[in-house]
Design a protein around this nucleic acid. Structure first.
Length: 233
DNA sequence: AAATTTGTCAACCGCTACTGC
DNA sequence: AGCAGTAGCGGTTGACAAATT
């Protein structure tokens, strides 16, 4: 859902919906240098956003292999099961659903699963009370309320295609690979510096802090590599 | 066709945890 | 131990679209 774009007059920072241009800047910057410091990052990436906003946008929308679209029955079952066990620990639940962000899972819970969960609980309690010998429907039937169905194959799409659009096809993006498979490609070149003080990527000029510029920053996903090593490689 | 209600979900906000000094 | 800066989490908001009246 798009939000009206606006500026926070106090901080001068932009709020609301992210534009394609902003997505491009953020994705290109994080792809190249990693998230070395979310608070400082927007300044260096040329974004008028707060670090929190950038972090959220990256984690929920731009990071590689993020899934979008309908949830599979299996995913729903996992969410409901884990929620029954651990409650609103969305980040913990998200660990069990690769490609889904905690925010998305939380939204999905509030919009569909909560109701369904209550519905199932009611049915389950009713059946217990009745203790009838009526033929029970299969678990599958019980788990799906009318008008709801799941496709055999997940209709989910990863964000990769969207990222391709975002990067306008000019930046090498990961496609059709799991995040684990991609980690190498994705993070192995965080220090490809076009120039010492700035770097240009798709008409986007970045500023880079010295720590990052000289390879002192260590991406959590990349092997340790200092600038000297980079030169030697 | 217009008005109203409901559902969805991106994004914001406030709080806590963690880390380094 | 205390403080400051930062990251991460979960609750909430609000814009928009779809459904309903």
């Amino acid at each position: 859902m798009a939000r009206i774009r606006c500026y926070d007059k106090k901080s001068g920072l932009k709020k609301g919906t992210w534009t394609l241009e902003e997505d491009k800047k953020l994705a290109a910057y994080v792809n190249k240098y990693g998230c070395w410091n979310w608070r400082q990052l927007p300044k260096f990436a040329g974004l008028s956003r707060c670090g929190k906003s950038c972090r959220l946008r990256w984690l929920n929308y731009l990071r590689p292999n993020i899934k979008r679209g309908n949830y599979t029955r299996e995913e729903d079952q996992i969410i409901m099961k884990l929620h029954a066990e651990i409650g609103n620990k969305w980040s913990a639940i998200a660990i069990h659903l690769p490609g889904r962000s905690d925010n998305e899972i939380k939204n999905h819970w509030h919009t569909s699963l909560k109701k369904r969960s209550k519905h199932e609980l009611t049915i389950s309690n009713g059946k217990k009370r009745e203790a009838s010998n009526v033929n029970q429907k299969s678990d599958e039937d019980q788990n799906i309320t009318p008008n709801e169905s799941y496709s055999e194959v997940s209709p989910c799409v990863t964000i990769d295609q969207n990222m391709e659009d975002i990067m306008d096809g000019k930046c090498e993006m990961i496609q059709e690979k799991s995040f684990e498979e991609c980690i190498g490609n994705f993070w192995t070149e965080p220090f490809l510096i076009d120039s010492f003080n700035s770097t240009t990527n798709n008409n986007t000029e970045f500023c880079v802090p010295l720590e990052v510029e000289y390879g002192l920053f260590i991406s959590p996903f990349s092997p340790i590599m200092c600038y000297d090593e980079f030169l030697c490689s």
